[in-house]
Computed example of a mutant assay.
Amino acid sequence: MPLDQAHVEEEEFDGEKEMTFLEHLEELRWHLIRSIAAIFIFMIVAWFIKEWVYGSIIMGPSKVDFWTYRKMCEIGRLLHIDSLCLQELKFDVQNREISGQFMLAITSSAIIGLLIAFPYVIWEIWSFIKPGLRASEKRAARGAVLIISLLFFSGVLFGYYIVTPFAVHFMVNFQLDPSIVNQYDIKNYLSILTTLTLACGLMFQLPVVIMVLTKIGIVTPSFLKEYRRHAFVVILIVAAVITPSPDMISQILVAIPLYFLFEVSILVSNRIYKDNLKQLEDEHI
């Protein structure tokens, strides 16, 4: 290898000091400690406002005055469709364990802490990975923390305000016989709420993943278009896995935005791919 080329490749690492395996482990340990500390701090904050968290946020989709249901009713009035106005949710939420509510308070506080601390946790992960990347790889991932955080919170909001209310509405109002009364355990309700919202938050990361893979040359737009049908099948399988119950409405509500994100990822991949080609052409001029 020519000396000039070797010198350029060395500079691509921005002069980062090479670390031993044990030093990497120590660095990772501190990143994890800081991430856990941030989650714990927000967990404590959520604990002190747990009554508001449960009354307004967690139990929100179980109440007929929830934002989504009110907007549905407004749309129904404009379209003169009275069935869109929700009159009641036919179910009761119960706690069946002595320590159930106390443990649920801890669990929900931990979940809230993780959600709020998510951008900081991602930043800590990025800070650990960044020194080992080449300059071109760092440029490809520029602004990744902000984009990932925005997409994650967009997915969480979509799951909370769209997917969860429709899933809850369908499941609790589906009735085989009027004599059957719906009485659900609070753990089951919290599991559905958490799974759907967090799953949507993670699903919304698909464009970022495709963008990075295209930037480093692993994925191309033609590849994504060629396997579009296969991707649709995989999306249906993923939707069936991440939904906590076997009802079709939950799976469809999860599959639709995921497929939409896949189509958006194709557009993102096409844009990045053209930029890569243009960059190669400029280097050869």
Rank of each mutant, 00 (worst) to 15 (best):
L3S: 14
H7T: 06
D14Y: 12
E16Y: 01
K17T: 15
M19P: 13
T20M: 14
F21H: 14
E23Y: 00
E26Q: 10
W30R: 09
L32M: 07
M43T: 15
K50Q: 14
W52V: 10
V53L: 15
V64R: 05
R70N: 13
R70T: 09
M72K: 04
M72T: 07
I75D: 01
D82I: 00
L86F: 04
L89D: 13
V93E: 13
N95D: 08
R96I: 14
R96D: 15
E97T: 07
I112A: 14
G113H: 06
A117Q: 05
I122T: 11
F128Y: 15
F128D: 12
L133R: 04
S136T: 11
R139S: 14
L146N: 07
I148T: 15
L157A: 13
Y160R: 08
Y161K: 11
L176E: 10
D177F: 02
P178F: 02
P178W: 09
Q183H: 02
Q183S: 11
Y184P: 08
D185V: 02
K187T: 10
S191L: 14
S191F: 11
L193P: 06
T194E: 08
T195K: 12
L196Y: 07
C200W: 07
P207C: 09
V212G: 03
V212N: 11
I218G: 05
P221Q: 03
S222C: 04
E226C: 05
F232R: 05
I235R: 01
A239H: 01
A239E: 03
A240T: 01
A240F: 00
V241H: 06
S245P: 01
Q251A: 03
V254S: 00
L258S: 07
Y259C: 01
F260Q: 02
L261G: 00
V264W: 06
V268A: 08
N270K: 12
Y273C: 02
L280M: 13
I285R: 06
